[in-house]
Design a protein around this nucleic acid. Structure first.
Length: 372
DNA sequence: AAAACGGGGTT
DNA sequence: AACCCAGTTTT
């Protein structure tokens, strides 16, 4: 690992371009024109970085634009209801990010006195801000010499140094130190963005475009032919399938929605009443007569190591409410046209979009076999 | 259909 | 270090 610093120094002494020179030159030419790079402010950097956690650039762009129109600054976000914040986030997933962002806006508008802190350690204290985001904010918003080690940069660095080790906390800490040391004075913002951009555009996960890489003369894995094998990854645990059942309880044209409780999954979001288990067990638990149910279709929803298969059944109201086990949840009858006003969890959103919005009748989404 | 991608938080 | 959160995109 000494090699990286030593080779930078040698390169400089030999009059060759350093790694950082080649990288910055490439970035000056190839940087994408992204909305959050246009009129950048600490606030816009914060919003974009939160949206970009776990989510790709192409997906984020329309959300970012809409968000900045509705909430252009900390004050407007701080003044918003959580429900509206969640609605604007709907579809991006991992809603804790939206609640954390809202919480940061409230902190900035209140105790923090109007501005984001500008140093790594203080940023790290903010909700939803970990080592990556603290480094990204410090460098991209304030041009502080901190590393921003995201998945792109981790991949790039394990190749550059040909690290044959599964990345863990210790390696990440080491890379973070090394990157920090390599930042050219005053260039933290460009240097970090260049690293991430190179990871996103050239140093691709499966098929890196090594021949077009500005760092090809510095890359150990390229020299050894191991680039495509880096970084090493742990084997994934097997996928577990979970069956669930959603009830589309209708009262004429209105649907019953339930709000998720605070402190539980999907906090603050709404759903069509959904229960784990199969048709039989759910009917028994709820003491309902399932001969009155009509299959509306099914949706599938996957995340990390789970696959959730949700069968949806329509039933006219005529059951006793509240449903057993949902007594302490807020319930609301919502007209079909107004379902879009409620932030729904992914499963219920797929039901709304695939099973309710287009037409009645038998259908399914996401390849779900709408077995009648 | 399967696999990849990918940060923060918790324990 | 391992697992949860409660997902989309690529292959």
């Amino acid at each position: 690992m000494e090699k990286f610093e030593i080779s930078c120094r040698e390169e400089a002494m030999n009059g060759r371009n350093t790694f950082a020179d080649d990288l910055l030159r490439w970035y000056a030419q190839e940087a994408r024109d992204l909305p959050w790079r246009r009129r950048s402010s600490p606030y816009s950097v914060l919003v974009s970085e939160f949206m970009l956690q776990q989510t790709q650039v192409a997906t984020v762009i329309p959300y970012f634009t809409r968000w900045m129109e509705r909430f252009p600054d900390f004050e407007s976000l701080a003044a918003a209801d959580e429900e509206e914040v969640l609605r604007l986030w709907e579809g991006l997933g991992y809603y804790r990010r939206a609640r954390s962002l809202h919480a940061i806006a409230l902190l900035v508008a209140g105790p923090l006195g109007g501005a984001l802190p500008d140093d790594y350690d203080s940023l790290l204290q903010l909700p939803g801000v970990g080592p990556y985001t603290a480094g990204a904010l410090a460098s991209l918003a304030f041009n502080r010499p901190e590393a921003a080690l995201d998945g792109n940069v981790e991949r790039l660095m394990t190749r550059l140094l040909d690290i044959a080790e599964i990345p863990g906390p210790a390696l990440r800490e080491d890379l973070r130190r090394r990157i920090t040391a390599a930042i050219p004075p005053g260039r933290a913002r460009d240097f970090n963005q260049a690293l991430m951009e190179l990871g996103a555009l050239v140093c691709l996960p499966r098929n890196p475009l090594c021949l077009s890489c500005p760092l090809k003369g510095h890359c150990l894995a390229l020299a050894r032919g191991t680039a495509a094998e880096r970084p090493l990854r742990r084997l994934r645990p097997p996928v577990e399938t979970v069956r669930a059942l959603a009830l589309l309880v209708t009262d004429g044209d209105r649907f019953l929605l339930l709000r998720h409780r605070d402190g539980e999954r999907w906090q603050g979001l709404w759903e069509f009443p959904t229960f784990d288990g199969d048709e039989e067990s759910v009917a028994a638990d709820l003491q309902l007569d399932r001969t009155a149910w009509k299959k509306a279709g099914s949706v599938r929803h996957s995340f990390t190591r789970y696959r959730r298969e949700i069968s949806a059944f329509s039933l006219a109201v005529g059951l006793s409410l509240p449903l057993p086990g949902t007594e302490d949840r807020e319930a609301r009858w919502v007209a079909r046209e107004e379902l879009g006003d409620y932030p729904l969890s992914a499963g219920s959103r797929k039901i709304r979009e695939g099973l309710i919005a287009p037409a009645e009748g038998e259908s399914s989404v996401d390849g779900g076999r709408g077995k009648a």
